[in-house]
C-alpha cells in the first residue's frame, strides 16, 4: 500500500493544506489526465464504493465532473439535486446527512449556498466529505484543477505571478485559489473595484490593485471570476457596461500581462461582462476548456485518495 499522501478524511478546503499534500494530489491528478486521454478509461479502483453528489445549488459542470470522475473509477454515483430530494419538503441539512449516512455512502460531495455547510455535514457523517463549493467560503477542487492547469502549462507554480480579477468578495473560487497559490509560492494579485473586495483581504497574503492594467502588468496568469447578475445594477457596481469598460478582460488590458500569459475562468462565463468573447475563445491564450478537462482528473484523484484513506483506516 502507498503512503497516506493525503492524511485527511475529508477535503473541505485548501486552507490548512501543505505544499506536499497539494503536490501529491496534483501528481496523482496528472496521472489521471493520461488515463482519461487513453482509450481504456474505465478503472476498477472504486468498485463497490458509493459516491453521492449532494447539490443544493444548481451546477452542471461541477456535478457532471464529479459524476464522471466517480464512474471512471468504477464507483456507483448517485446524484441528488435539491428539487428532487426531501430538502424541498423541509428536511434539514443534518437530517439529510443522517439519512444518507444510513445508506453507507463512501463519499459525499456537497455543494451548498451557505459557507460552512460542508464542514457541518462532515461532523455528522461517517463517510468522507468533499466540498464542491460552500457559499463564499471555498471550492477546493476548483483551485486544484486551476493549479494543475497552470503547472502543466508553465511547469511549476512557485514564482509565478497570478492576477485574480473580479468579484473576489463573493467568490469561493478566489479564496481557495489564494490559499493554494500562496502555499505553493506564487505571487497572488487581486484586481477589483473596491466594492467587490471583502474586508481586510490584504491580510491574506495578496497584493491588491484597483486598475486592470496595473494589476495585470507582467503577470503570468490572468484568472477571471464570474460576476453574478445580482451584483449588477448599482448595488456593488453601477452597470455591466461600466464593469466591462474598467474590469472586463479584453486584448487591450491583457497586453499589460506577459506575452505568454494564460487566461483562466472557472465558468460559466458571462461573455461581454467579465471577459471579451473572442478572447475567451482564443486557443493561444485561453485555457478555459483545458480547465474543464483537468477538473475530471483532479476529482478522480480526490475520490481515489479519500477512499484509499478510508480503506487503510480500517
Amino acid at each position: 500500500m502507498t503512503d497516506m499522501i493525503y492524511p485527511h478524511r475529508h477535503l473541505l478546503g485548501i486552507e490548512g493544506l501543505g505544499p506536499q499534500e497539494i503536490t501529491a494530489l496534483l501528481d496523482l491528478s496528472d496521472s489521471y489526465v493520461e488515463t482519461n486521454r487513453s482509450s481504456d478509461r474505465k478503472l476498477n479502483l472504486l468498485r463497490g464504493k458509493t459516491v453521492i453528489n449532494l447539490f443544493y445549488e444548481n451546477s452542471t459542470r461541477t456535478r457532471t465532473s464529479f459524476e464522471l470522475a466517480g464512474k471512471r473509477l468504477g464507483a456507483d454515483v448517485i446524484n441528488m439535486s435539491v428539487q428532487a430530494s426531501s430538502v424541498a419538503k423541509g428536511e434539514t441539512l443534518i437530517d439529510t446527512a443522517m439519512t444518507l449516512n444510513a445508506m453507507h455512502a463512501d463519499v459525499l460531495v456537497i455543494r451548498h449556498a451557505d459557507s460552512g455547510a460542508a464542514q457541518l455535514l462532515s461532523q455528522k457523517v461517517n463517510c468522507s466529505v468533499i466540498n464542491a463549493g460552500d457559499g463564499q467560503h471555498e471550492h477546493p477542487t476548483q483551485a486544484l484543477l486551476d493549479a494543475l492547469t497552470i503547472r502543466r502549462r508553465k511547469g511549476h507554480l512557485d514564482g509565478l505571478t497570478v492576477a485574480i480579477c473580479g468579484d473576489v468578495r463573493h467568490s469561493r473560487v478566489a479564496r481557495s485559489n489564494i490559499h493554494l497559490l500562496n502555499v505553493m509560492g506564487a505571487n497572488v494579485r487581486l484586481v477589483a473595484p473596491r466594492t467587490l473586495l471583502p474586508g481586510q483581504i490584504d491580510r491574506m497574503g495578496v497584493e491588491v490593485f484597483y486598475n486592470m492594467r496595473q494589476g495585470l502588468k507582467d503577470c503570468d496568469i490572468v484568472m477571471m471570476l464570474r460576476v453574478q447578475n445580482e451584483r449588477m445594477a448599482g448595488n456593488f457596481i453601477p452597470s455591466i457596461r461600466e464593469y466591462f469598460h474598467f474590469f472586463g478582460l479584453d486584448y487591450e488590458k491583457l497586453s499589460a500581462a506577459k506575452p505568454d500569459a494564460l487566461i483562466m475562468h472557472p465558468g460559466p462565463m458571462n461573455r461581454g461582462v467579465e471577459i471579451d468573447s473572442d478572447l475567451a475563445d482564443d486557443v493561444e491564450r485561453s485555457v478555459i476548456r483545458e480547465q474543464v478537462e483537468m477538473g475530471v482528473a483532479v476529482r478522480m484523484a480526490c475520490l481515489d485518495v479519500l477512499t484509499r484513506n478510508k480503506a487503510e483506516a480500517k
Binding site: G234, N235, I237, P238, E242
Partner: peptide, 15 residues
C-alpha cells in the same frame, strides 16, 4: 453619485 439622485444605485462613476 447615485442614479437619478435617488440614493439607491451607484451611477456609472468611472465612465
Amino acid at each position: 453619485a447615485t442614479k437619478k439622485l435617488e440614493g439607491k444605485e451607484l451611477a456609472e462613476i468611472g465612465m
